[in-house]
Design a protein around this nucleic acid. Structure first.
Lengths: 199, 199, 199, 199
DNA sequence: GAATAAGCGAGACGGTACGTCCAGTCTTCTT
DNA sequence: AAGAAGACTGGACGTACCGTCTCGCTTATTC
């Protein structure tokens, strides 16, 4: 059986869109991890992918949108929020997982730069919210809603706000690194908001 | 307000450094408010200020650093954290003031873009932290430390974490606007963290 | 006149070659008159004709060849050189007719641009000579040959050279417009070459 | 005496305009002769000259204008029309010199392509006329005017028209090569127009 | 009080990337 | 089986800024 390896046809004619998209996304992801958003250029992505700039402009609305897609292709994180019945434990686990993602791998820098770029790239901004932040926020909110039903949390709180106080606090230290992101920090976040800081 | 008075054409010769700096900063501030970071260009600042690009490069290490300086010149916010003895009221007042700054004026967008640009501009990043975020963080931490001494707050909490849970949550909604920044939100932030959300 | 009628969308399937050719040529002629060679693009012709670029490439070897064909379709000049027996009158009439063609309608600009493009498009160059200039040259040469036989012209002259001195002179003023093309000019051309300029 | 050889400074800073212009023109001339107008690209000229495209756009209004300048730099023909007192001999000599220029060297092709490009490049068109064709036309006209004064030519002729019948005829065969450009042709041109072709 | 040094404005330069246009090639779908 | 539709590479276009560098001035400092 002669492994007819994927030919990766080149030259001028038409190629299956899927093949091109795949190569472009791979190149985008690699470049993003290698150089960060500062060196992330449509020109460089095109060169790396062996594709034409025109093709990229046809499929992606902005530099940032391409970067996000490239990153997503590279990382493809699982989207889950296990419900053990103990909301405090679950929140702690999730926040810890998030801080580990931010600090443990190169993902922290990339996410920070994507959020940074989204401040002046509305295409990236909406793409990031729709495909990244909003779904994650929804999962956490849902888990807390269930906990309220179970009577584990007060029923007069807004879970959306709690999300900002847990994950938003982590983003804060990521984007404005006055203070470091540690496990202690992650645990304190949950602890504070669960028990309150009032004496 | 900032009466862009006639460019004061002074010929090409040497001018006092102070005068030049002043005009450059004014121009930078105006341009930042007018076009945002996206259109904020050293070239445009130089043209607006009637200054040479060389001069700007001599005094500011990066585009972002210049933008921050220009913004600071334009807004020059007061730095204070009144201590009434009631920590909950003080925190609420401060967080509300902050959200009003972010939403009420054009400052929100500028701050967001500055933080965004700081992700790929280390000069801007450190300048922002040293001159903007760190001092404000210190004030809030100090206020909470006093409240701990007064016995109003538990003594096993880390005020630094609380800062992230209050101000960081606001930054979260500013930078990733999945949810809006409202007065209700601001008040809930303080309330949640003071009493805790556990039933 | 040329009523650009609605593109006749016919779906994607096969169409009779003749129909396609006709529509492409019509589109080419219109576009040429409308925008000149500068804006004459295979892409635009295809769009105007509702045809595929591939089809055009299959039938015409170059942009210029298509333009020439389109022009010929649009103008379809009569090819005649009436012989009244008076060679001087006939030459004057023909040269005048030519200058009127060049100046009176938009044809002058188009012919000039076709000749211009033919300098870097060998397909266009040979097509233009074979289908346009050579036949006209032959007619004039033939008329003069007859006049030589009739004894109206000297028998030691080369009619080919005279063609260059009459029509070539007109092309000269068309392509390098230092001097205008007037009736006076046309008449002088014939007069000079008939009688000579020597005292 | 350490021969401080001309450094041909490179790098980013400002270079004397004259030096850059010189190198660009040299590159333009070389490229024009090497590839003709078809391959004559601002991009290639810039690369060859080690200059920035922006610089070229700043100094030359169009591709054609640059090509003409480059050609002129490369060839720098003498501009003269010797007056021996015998107008027929002088015209013959000049026309022959012109045909030799067109056929003997690579100049013919280049001139043809420049005239060709000038049909869709108004900057080139006016530059060519002002700097190339008009002065040459004026010289020939002046020589004939003197001959008229000397009584060698009829005083009712327009020298401008004669120019078209001599040089224009040559351009005709250059641009629409139905017939070749030979010495015989050149001599016939003058002969025909001097004596007339009428029997 | 005149010479000198320190900057400054102006702006050109090499570069990099942008976003666009078209050429020419190739494939898939449709009639 | 031919044509439409249209995606693809490639290359040039003209533009915008970047950061660097040189001029010619003008002012402030020094002799």
């Amino acid at each position: 059986m002669t492994e007819t390896q994927p030919p990766i046809r080149r030259g001028r004619g038409r190629r299956p869109a899927a093949e091109v998209r795949e190569q472009v996304l791979a190149a985008a992801g690699e470049l993003l991890l290698a150089e960060g958003m500062a060196g992330f250029t449509i020109e460089k992505v095109a060169a790396r992918a062996g594709a034409s700039r025109m093709t990229i402009y046809k499929w992606w609305p902005s530099r940032g949108a391409l970067a996000l897609d490239g990153y997503a292709t590279k990382v493809r994180t699982v989207l889950e929020f296990p419900d053990t019945g103990d909301i405090e434990a679950d929140l702690t686990a999730q926040v810890l997982a998030f801080t580990h993602l931010l600090t443990g791998t190169g993902a922290g820098k990339v996410i920070a730069e994507l959020i940074g770029a989204s401040q002046t790239d509305s295409e990236l901004s909406s793409a990031f919210r729709e495909r990244y932040s909003a779904p994650r926020r929804a999962l956490a909110v849902e888990a807390m809603a269930k906990a309220i039903e179970r009577g584990q949390l007060r029923d007069d709180i807004d879970p959306q706000v709690v999300v900002d106080q847990l994950w938003g606090a982590c983003y804060h230290r990521l984007l404005i690194p006055d203070e470091p992101i540690t496990d202690e920090f992650a645990k304190s976040l949950v602890h504070n908001v669960m028990l309150g800081i009032k004496r």
